[in-house]
Design a protein around this nucleic acid. Structure first.
Lengths: 212, 212
DNA sequence: TAATTTATGTCAGCTCATGACAGATGACAA
DNA sequence: TTGTCATCTGTCATGAGCTGACATAAATTA
């Protein structure tokens, strides 16, 4: 990789870190682009060459998470039932973050805390999640052998995502706490859902061993 | 009601209608506050005395909906299981909108279409919904005889809300179409959930007529 | 009608965000 | 090494969203 690209990556990371730190210490609205740019020693105009908006930089770790989750899901074996594949993707993502370079994990946790404590960012994060949800639905539909407009596929993704959101609701101290709450919610969800609810109709569990 | 209050209400409604029409015809971002104010013949400054932001006016019908829904839920008899109470509140709200003055219903449908076609407004709407979700959880928790931090209560609300969101995903032509899709999704949900999943643990259905 | 409260308009100012242009810097071939 | 090219960066100008301060106009109350 050339010097140019490395420099760009460093500037980008520096902008994210500076922004997150300023946002968390003095508040999102109270922080100006000028302050972020000054801390990284670039012009305010340059900030906007890296991020489309002030919101963009705050949500960039969340956007990365979404990409990561989708990538995990696509990589899951097709033999897994849809809801299982979703759950496992989340577990995989969490453990990757835990193993990975501390800088990235730190950004994710910081962004999580920031988003959760700033209403306008919460809205932005929800928008990202909703947009990714469409892609998740496409993947789940593929696994269920249906088109993306299949309501049951949409419901499967929707229920899973709502669990993820609940998970983010509590206070985020670190990744382990997040993982713990996630497992707890998953147990509750499985207790509330009918076995096989996420399977394609062809493979649905027979109600009382009666042939259809 | 005095003349002053009536005038204020008329100005407010006029601002909402002007904004929605402009947003829908030429796009949300492409519309300026000046244009909205000019159409109602007030100063731009006055606009901000009625609405905190450009987003606020676009989401005001959605915010009203949220208030309305919560009011319906609180009015539901305590004898109803939580998820039933939620479903019935939605039905009640839809039929009230259908009966009510056409202006309000028109605003709701317009806002729906607008929000669905404007990413930033989608985020804003999600924020409103999430904020109301906290109050819905409190009410559901009360009905289940738990505190608001009870995870199962949160799950009940979360699943219901995710159905509502799915409902809004499709194209919104009118209120009847919305109601139809809602019923369809509700049927699917009930088919996916275990009977009694939303009941307090004390009243949970026994798995096979075995006394606990 | 007079006094008080409240809504509105005007103005100045800040931040966010974008286009245009010029200068600086890394990439690459002769 | 040097010159050329592509790309990144800074400066400037501009417009839109939003807010505080103050004066004016309108409605309420006495």
């Amino acid at each position: 990789m050339g010097l140019r690209e490395r420099k760009k990556q460093r500037t980008r990371d520096a902008l994210i870190d500076a922004a997150l730190d300023l946002f968390l210490s003095q508040g999102y609205e109270a922080t100006t682009i000028d302050q972020i740019a000054a801390r990284v020693e670039v012009s305010p105009r340059t900030f906007f060459r890296y991020f489309a908006s002030k919101e963009d930089v705050a949500l960039s770790p969340t956007a990365d998470e979404q990409e990561m989750f989708l990538a995990e899901l696509v990589a899951r074996p097709l033999s897994e039932p849809p809801f299982t594949a979703l759950s496992q993707s989340m577990r995989a993502m969490l453990s990757i973050l835990k193993e990975a370079d501390g800088a990235e994990a730190s950004r994710v946790v910081k962004a999580q805390r920031l988003v959760h404590s700033t209403p306008v960012l919460l809205g932005g994060a929800m928008r990202l999640i909703r947009e990714n949800e469409r892609r998740l639905i496409a993947e789940v539909a593929r696994r269920r052998g249906t088109t993306p407009d299949d309501l049951q596929s949409q419901l499967v993704v929707s229920v899973f995502v709502s669990i993820g959101l609940l998970c983010m609701d509590g206070p985020t101290e670190d990744l382990s706490g997040l993982a713990r709450r996630y497992e707890e919610l998953l147990t509750l969800a499985e207790r509330s859902l009918r076995p096989g609810w996420d399977l394609p109709v062809r493979a649905e569990a027979a109600p009382a061993s009666v042939a259809s």
